[in-house]
Amino acid sequence: MDSSSEITFDGEQRIGIQKRSVRRRFQALLEELTVMNVQSVADRMAELNPIEGRSHFCEAVMRSQMQFPQSTNVYAALVAAINPRFPDVGYLVAKRAAVRFREACDSRDRDRTETAAALVAHLANQAVVHAALAWDVLMYLLTVYPMDNTAAAAGFCIECGSMLRASAPQRFTDIVGGFRRLLRGLVVDKPLRRRILKLIQADESMFEDYPAIIYELDLVEAGEQVTHMVSLLQPIDPEYSLDSSISSTSEIAGGGYGSDEEVSSC
């Protein structure tokens, strides 16, 4: 080939290509993720410099969790395993999870609200984020469009009730008592009634069937986790500028970074 026809890249272009490659490798590893290999996947992701690619990591995890909410605890465990080594990565996930929840709730999208709330629940279970954010989410569900979000609030309590009760026993008792009164005082539809009864039964059994962290996903030693303070009552910077710097270099090697469909089930 004539040297004049060879494609050359400057430093910024090479960085863009490298970022695109890292993003695809994050996605490939997420596709391999299961309950049994979280630590292995986290170790391999750690080799990809997740600080530099933290926006890639964050968005890939959050898209996957939205697409496969039944695996929310697995995605949260992955973040928990990465977080002690790369706290900036865990902090970004925590902030964007909080922002995504608030946006979903404000848009009155029930499915997105429940899925977004579930990620916050399991990040709190894993102590990636302080329990205060879980309480913020619960209060938001109970006070912002409560007729839309009562079932989501009950489901949220099931997801992280063990942790909430441990963090504030009397406060959680009062919350469950409010759900009990709701059953006695109003005519509620069958799906909501079933959800509330499920919560009451879980609470009476001390969440025996709904532990904060199942054994296979309890990967971080006590005292090693870095717990981030994020609150819906305070401004949250989701650092979307990281995304703009990514997208500005994404055209270099043949287009954008792909669609949501590239992220598959764990």
Rank of each mutant, 00 (worst) to 15 (best):
L133K: 10
D88F: 14
A166Y: 01
S167A: 07
D218C: 04
M147T: 15
D218W: 11
V61C: 04
Q13C: 07
T72A: 00
D209K: 09
K95L: 12
Y215M: 05
P211T: 11
L92V: 10
Y210L: 03
E204F: 04
V220Y: 09
K198S: 15
A28N: 14
V176P: 01
D174Q: 03
E6M: 12
P87C: 08
Y210R: 05
M45V: 01
S5V: 08
R25L: 08
G178T: 03
G185D: 13
H56N: 13
V22E: 01
A127M: 11
E6Y: 08
L33I: 06
G255R: 02
Q170I: 13
H56L: 05
A124G: 09
I236C: 09
I246K: 02
Q18Y: 09
V120I: 14
G256H: 08
E6K: 05
L183P: 15
I158D: 02
V263A: 00
D136L: 09
A127G: 05
A80W: 14
L92R: 03
Y215K: 05
L182G: 05
P50M: 00
L233H: 10
R14N: 13
S55Q: 11
G185K: 09
I214C: 01
K95C: 12
L197Q: 01
S167P: 12
R23P: 03
E262K: 04
R193A: 13
E59S: 11
E52K: 15
V176Q: 02
N149D: 07
I82M: 06
L119G: 11
C160R: 01
R63H: 12
G256A: 03
I51S: 14
E261L: 11
K95E: 13
V263W: 13
T8C: 05
S162W: 06
P146I: 07
L219W: 10
V220R: 02
I175W: 00
H130L: 03
S248P: 01
I158V: 15
I236S: 10
Q225Y: 11
L197E: 15
E261D: 13
M66V: 07
V120L: 04
V99Q: 14
S244M: 13
R171M: 14
